[in-house]
Computed example of a mutant assay.
Amino acid sequence: MVLLGLLSGPLMGMAQPGTEKLVLVCGQSKVLLVDYQNGKDSVPAVVWSWDAHEAMDLPDEYRTKKFNTMDDCKPIRQGEQLLVSSSGGAIALINRSDKKILFHASVPNAHSIELLPGELIAAAASTAPTGNRIMLFDRRQSGKPIFSDSLYSAHGLVWDDKRKSLFALGLTVLREYKLMMTGQKSLKLVQEWKIPGEGGHDLQPTLDGNYLFLTETNGAWQFDLTKHTFIKIPGFTDAPHTKSVGRDRSGQFVYTVPEKSWWTYHVRFQNPGHALSFPDLEVYKARWFQP
């Protein structure tokens, strides 16, 4: 059971950033926006949702197949738009107010997506015959990549606007790329670090822009963007195979850990602890909605 509590206002379901404690949740063909404070015990209050199966502006193959396994969702442009990726083989940019698809492209085993300057979109293509790479798209053009670079089991992407760098997480390494805008737009690899453990999975920036949270098979880590060092995330009790982890302005963590295969039916919180139940959804990742 999901408690539906749409917000009032000129754009129904459009919570204003900073006025609510909101969480993005993605899994299967759906992306949900949940009001953390107005749920009932473990029952989430869903204030907005998008289901690829209902997105009639997507080609049939994307609508019925490629977006069946949503694995990342990120708010951009003050929450007015969302980036989503699916391991079924696709990425998309969604306008939140009317749910229109502003861009979509085929990406083998897509596991993350990020907006870069100049209307460019980067995607992480994980293990697949034509995957294991970072792909770069121009959203003003067709859905064909304009550049790619090999990265085995590519899983996480973060654009760092302070450093003007794209950070990318693979199976055993974290990389830093610079965006080359002269001539044919491309990415230039400038640094690479071996991560603690292997099976790099989630990559998320901290709000202060000084660190990256990353997860791998055995736990979760914090990468210092100045010192280039890894330590366990302070105050977070991690677990093997953590699929996503983030922290909001209050210091509360949101995270997902598989209960069956790669998915979970709960989104969990720490400091303070809590859990939201999604019995009808195979949840993959959860993100604080902090545009």
Rank of each mutant, 00 (worst) to 15 (best):
V2Y: 06
L4V: 13
L4A: 14
L4I: 14
G5V: 06
S8P: 05
M14C: 08
L24W: 07
L32A: 02
V34R: 03
D35E: 13
K40R: 15
A45Q: 15
V46G: 05
W48L: 03
D51R: 03
E54F: 08
M56P: 06
D57K: 01
L58F: 13
P59T: 10
P59V: 11
D71S: 09
D72F: 05
D72T: 15
P75G: 02
R77D: 12
S86P: 07
S86A: 14
S87I: 15
I91D: 01
A105G: 10
V107G: 08
S112M: 07
E114Y: 07
P117Q: 10
A123Y: 14
P129I: 12
R133S: 08
R140A: 09
R140C: 05
S142Y: 14
S142P: 06
D149T: 13
S150M: 08
L151Y: 01
Y152N: 09
V158P: 03
D160A: 00
L166M: 07
L169R: 00
G170H: 03
L171I: 11
L174D: 04
R175K: 08
L179Y: 10
L179K: 12
M180E: 12
G183Y: 08
Q184G: 12
Q184W: 08
L187I: 11
L187R: 06
E192K: 06
K194F: 11
P196V: 07
G197E: 01
E198I: 10
E198L: 11
D202V: 12
D202K: 01
D208C: 09
N210K: 12
E216K: 04
E216H: 06
N218K: 13
G219M: 05
Q222T: 15
L225G: 08
T237L: 12
P240K: 13
T242C: 13
S244G: 05
S244W: 02
S244F: 01
R247I: 15
R247V: 15
D248K: 10
S261G: 11
T264E: 07
F269I: 10
P272F: 14
A275Y: 03
L276Y: 04
L281G: 03
